[in-house]
């Protein structure tokens, strides 16, 4: 049964991209365990505002695990200690009375801090702009049922496509690699006949952009998949490597 708990939260505060950051600790009484983690931060912010202090800046929007806007390292884990969920889906029942909870922003070279817990993830968008699409314009496409696609293939593409672009993979990786994210899109499109045509070019363009933006190399530690809230599989990285080698071979 959910109860009320008293907790301490140790939060990373950083006024701006170029400012020095530091941890600050806050005490919170009577937090209902049925509250979500972000609702707990809301409560803390209401308290800070009532004391005329600066509330904690953090990213969030859908609050149901799909937009990929929320981030946060909670007690050393991207998206917190629970499995297969985003921070916004984390609930206070995962914490106990008297606990001190540490909250940090994503820490990755390619994701600079904007303020407090907010980071700049536009690098992921730039990778997508380099090749994360099928080159079709609106209109003049064939009937949707013109190409049959085996259900297992469609399902696998769907699993890869579940990536929400949250950045936890790069944040979890000691090398700061974005391979899981990139491979998810490359796989989704390479699996489907519509995307296969450009598969090699796409893989090359996206990987090149990723390198250019300062993401690290993949050394197969698997930390990304372990922390991914959408269980995007490491098999996608293997597929990306195949597409990439294939592209190099063609050059």
């Amino acid at each position: 049964m959910d109860q009320n708990i008293n907790i301490k939260v140790k939060v990373w505060r950083q006024a701006g991209p170029k400012e020095q950051g530091h941890f600050e600790t806050y005490e919170l009484q009577n937090i209902f365990q049925g509250a979500s983690f972000l609702e707990m931060i809301d409560i803390l912010n209401e308290k800070l505002i009532s004391e005329h202090k600066d509330p904690i800046a953090f990213d969030h929007d859908c609050r149901e695990g799909i937009c990929g806007m929320c981030s946060l390292y909670v007690n050393g884990h991207p998206h917190g200690p629970d499995q297969e969920i985003t921070t916004c889906q984390l609930h206070m029942r995962k914490f106990h009375d008297g606990e001190t909870i540490t909250i940090e922003p994503w820490r990755s070279r390619a994701f600079p801090v904007i303020k407090d817990l907010m980071v700049d993830r536009s690098a992921y968008d730039k990778i997508m702009q380099a090749g994360g699409f099928v080159s079709v314009n609106t209109g003049g496409v064939p009937d949707a049922n013109a190409i049959a696609i085996p259900k297992p293939v469609a399902d696998e593409a769907m699993d890869a496509a579940s990536c929400i672009g949250c950045g936890a993979c790069a944040a979890a990786c000691k090398n700061g690699s974005a391979m899981l994210f990139v491979s998810a899109k490359v796989s989704q499109l390479a699996l489907l006949p519509q995307g296969k045509i450009e598969a090699a070019r796409r893989a090359k363009a996206m990987v090149a952009k990723m390198d250019e933006l300062g993401f690290g190399n993949c050394t197969n530690t698997g930390a990304c998949a372990a922390e991914c809230p959408k269980s995007v599989s490491l098999a996608n990285i293997a597929r990306l490597n195949r597409e990439f080698i294939c592209a190099k071979f063609k050059d």
């Binding site: 699409f133 496409v141 696609i149």
Partner: peptide, 22 residues
């Protein structure tokens, strides 16, 4: 109907039946 055609062309992985159709 054009919307569904467009989305499939973009690689939207709609659910399919075992025969491979939508």
């Amino acid at each position: 109907n054009s919307i569904i055609d467009q989305c499939v062309a973009q690689g939207v992985p709609f659910a399919r039946e075992y025969g491979g159709l939508l």
